[in-house]
Design a binder for these strands. Structure first.
Lengths: 214, 214
DNA sequence: CGTGCTTGGATAGTCCCGCTGACCAAGGAG
DNA sequence: CTCCTTGGTCAGCGGGACTATCCAAGCACG
């Protein structure tokens, strides 16, 4: 198919597709002659993937390029490749102040990991962006005087661990290694907004059950 | 305290504080004379709240203004006020194409709500942004040929419902109505990034348990 | 009393990001 | 041979979050 058809089938304007090509998010089509390039189903799928990442996952274009680069890089082993892809995902901004709240939050996070017995995660505390994000979020809550106990944090963590088990079970149903890496990345980028939507819907439901519509 | 001290204690530059004042995110200080304004602890707290929303919650300034407007509006009843605040939160972009995937996703979401028995949520399907977000996310997955069954979606939803119960239980520990509304909003804005961080940490942990570091 | 430093407020400018419109040369269709 | 379409290039735009500069009014101190 040519550019115009790729645009029509994906619902993305030709100008935007050209932009993605320039930015290296999409591989160039097979050049037929000087004025014609041929795109295939793989291009369409990749384009939809990019759109899912930018529109649903709200990811910046530069980050999409980086993540896709890791996904495509088959010189790496499975774990490294997956880790590299996942760690490139956007996370909360680095803390602008290194105050006592942040240090307290870090101790709290460490305590949480110990309680949960996440020994592997403990090894990663100094480098994992997810760990940094957690610390920043907890510090922000503490800064605002939220005084819920550590028990609540543990409960949330157990719930998310069960979600992670569901994710990985699904990843294992995939046939090829490439598919598994892509699924794992998608299983983070697309499942997260879904979990967020479900969380808010559940809040609305539970709130209505408790208090009605008053 | 004066502007400079507010800046120092919050870690936010005076230029940025002035910007927030202009944008109506922060109420002006008590004017002492033509060149001096006095700020109090309440200003500091509000500023930290704004920072949490923009930095941790990645919310645009315009949205923060809208949400805070609802939180401050005590002319409304509890449910309406809370709903207005929560619905103003950012959600995924509106779908650019209304194709068969979107309609299928909508049917799937309706089926999910029925299975879960979320009757209140069903009433809101036409207007709740969370419902729209869910549909968009599911449609994106389907467009990429992800073929997991409805059962998985139900499992995720049950997990998030349990998280919502934890949220609301905590909200009920608050004393005043104003505090409860603020807590509920924060309990969405700050808990969500926390859940996301925990989700990714849990994935790393579970992945390491299953496959080691290879 | 004056002089120079600080403070709060206003305005315009900067930088980044995700596109988008205008243009151009090379085909291919009639 | 002419004209329309196609893919590629490049400059520009619009929105968002700050930020640098300026200015006039105080206050502090010699």
């Amino acid at each position: 198919m040519r550019l115009a058809e790729l645009s029509k089938r994906s619902g993305v304007s030709t100008a935007t597709i050209k932009y993605y090509l320039r930015e290296g998010l999409l591989r160039p089509g097979r050049q037929v002659n000087a004025t014609t390039a041929e795109y295939d189903e793989e291009h369409l799928r990749r384009l939809r993937l990019v759109r899912a990442m930018t529109q649903v996952g709200r990811m910046p274009v530069a980050t999409v390029r980086e993540v896709l680069g890791h996904v495509d890089d088959d010189s790496l082993g499975r774990t490294v490749r997956l880790g590299a892809a996942l760690w490139a995902l956007p996370h909360v901004a680095e803390p602008d102040t290194d105050d006592e709240h942040l240090q307290a939050a870090q101790r709290e996070a460490d305590e949480l990991l110990r309680t949960l017995g996440w020994r592997n995660a403990e090894l990663l505390t100094s480098i994992s962006p997810a760990y940094r994000s957690l610390v920043v979020a907890v510090a922000a809550m503490r800064r605002l005087d939220y005084d819920w106990d550590a028990e609540l944090l543990v409960s949330y963590a157990r719930l998310m661990h069960r979600a992670a088990v569901l994710d990985l079970d699904f990843v294992e149903t995939r046939e090829t290694e490439a598919e598994r890496v892509e699924t794992a990345v998608l299983g983070t980028i697309l499942v997260e907004p879904m979990l967020q939507a479900l969380h808010r819907l559940a809040q609305e439901e539970e709130s209505a059950r408790r208090y009605g519509f008053e």
